[in-house]
Amino acid sequence: MILDIDTKLLKKNAYRVTKQRGITALRIRVPGGHLNIKYFDIIKEVAEKYGNGTVHITTRQGFEIPGISMEKIDEINELISPIIRGLKDEGVQIEDEEGGYPAAGTRNVSACIGNRVCPFANYDTTALALKIEKLIYPNDYHVKIAVTGCPNDCIKAHMQDIGIIGQVEPIYDPSRCIGCQACVKNCKRRVTGALTFENFKVVRDPNRCISCGECILKCPTSAWTRGEKYYRIVIMGRTGKKNPRLAQTFIEWADEESVLKIIKNMYDFIDKYIDKTLDKEHVGYIVDREGFKKFKEEVLKDVKLPKKAKVANHIDYTGYRYERNTIYD
């Protein structure tokens, strides 16, 4: 049997080259980690009919179906067309529904379970993930984005190129406060100790408050209530072999519109500065090379941040390196 396969196209199509010759695996995108159960039948059919009867749940909340023969890719792409159509129906720009996934560089936008279920979440993470998916997919640039409902960061937004963390502005009505100090004690024990009790009422230190909204949850009288929704954007976190590091705060108190625009702008930045001689280049390494200042200028182009927003002047990346000389290469 002759196997003549363009592996670049195969990868772009969301399949992968595995250790077993001629055998591939398909990744199903699940934006926001939330999938209509009707698609399970298709995933099951692909796994049973073309795969080895198993499915792997990926770290980015997709499904990976292993043990597929590369020859069957066209058949499988046709079989999964309802899933692709589902993306299209949500507004994702896809031309050929029968052709499988049109790109795989930009990874699935993952999300914690969000406020559809979790009491701590400050917004509907699944909905935002889908909005981002519509904006950035399909795209070949290697970008990882995750959105999380609160600073607990269950989705590990701090390990992404762009992480979105839900913020809420807590509003305090002293006349409703009975001084039980549930918020004060909780903030000290579980958050950052931003609340103190003075003169029988609660005082919030905005410099310590990370706007997680726990005070609102703990309040028995609704003295603390929810103000506007905001987002903290953390950037350039990554794993990888070369220089893993946690993402750092870029902007606090951004609104949804700005978040989307900044993400969109980041693709223009990549386009402008990516080293085209390379097979691929992560956005984080581009920023490392070109500098945060340039990145900031590019991504904030035409962005109207809310008055409250705060933008970092510089970012103190640490992370770690295995060998010192990699810095100089």
Partner: peptide, 15 residues
């Protein structure tokens, strides 16, 4: 009904 004033996000407070 106070829109969005429930303890959990996107919930209302009836009071």
């Amino acid at each position: 009904r106070l829109k969005g004033k429930g303890s959990f996000s996107d919930t209302d407070l009836v009071t």
